[in-house]
Nucleic acid binder design. Sequence first.
DNA 1: AGCGGGACCTGTGGGC
DNA 2: TGCCCACAGGTCCCGC
Length: 291
Amino acid sequence: MPELPEVETVVRTLRPQVLHRCIRRVDLLRPSQVHPLSLPLTTLEGRQIVEVTRRGKLVLLHLAAPASCPQIAAAAPDVPELLAVHLRMTGRLMTHPDGTPPHAHSRCLFYLDGTDGPSVLFFDDVRAFGLLFAATPALLQRWDFWRRMGPEPLEHPAATLGADLFSRLHTRRTALKALLLDQSVLAGIGNIYADESLFQAGLDPRRPGASLALPEWQQLCAALQAVLRLSIAQCGSSIRDYRDANGHVGAFQNSFAVYGRGGEPCTRCGRPLVRTRVAGRTTIFCPSCQH
DNA sequence: AGCGGGACCTGTGGGC
DNA sequence: TGCCCACAGGTCCCGC
């Protein structure tokens, strides 16, 4: 499922496909997947994609007025400067040749023009949980999810990040696993990388946040960064639906130590991994190695 | 305030 | 073969 490494991989593979292209027309097939605060997606028409980045699990298409459309004022309040896309569980972004008909699960098509001819950016999403949000920076600030999003796990040294988490969470009795899944604590972590990093750090997912000492937070952040970097290097994890913008699967699922391995032997001690529920989520851990 | 649990959505797969 | 249900997942919303 698209978490930080998968979204990062989508961004890297999507960028060369859409950079500098103009959005000629938007065909919204499932209006319920547009955020209620979003500008109408038709306001994207005539805008040029000038950069593709990531914030947490969000893909961000940065937009500007193309030289060929000078009549569009960049600073107008109703002209989006960003299109944020949340893939949730089954969302996909990829381009196809002009004229490709929508798929069964296509939710929005963006018809693009470029110097090497037209193409179509598909937003497909089987479970229709994904989200599209066309916004100005000011409008994005009205989105609680955006405004409250925590720090990027890979953009600070582990020691600094760990100290930050310690200071913010040392009174919280919430389970460690639930804290890692909370996007206002850290941006981009989901079920897979929460379980994997807790195993690598040797920490019990059920422990209250308040029970961790500073070095444990720092150890957890170091483990998290190692897991995320390794996964990005392997183009993320493909459990079932995930594909990058080229339609390719990731490889990190072959490196899972715990995720999806309940009942199988722990890679460290050989005892069976335990499957349980923490914060309403399936959680796999090793009771012998994680304390 | 902080937590747990249901709703949202659809396809898959196990059990009978 | 076919039906039913649990399950997967991230976030929002509600109630305790």
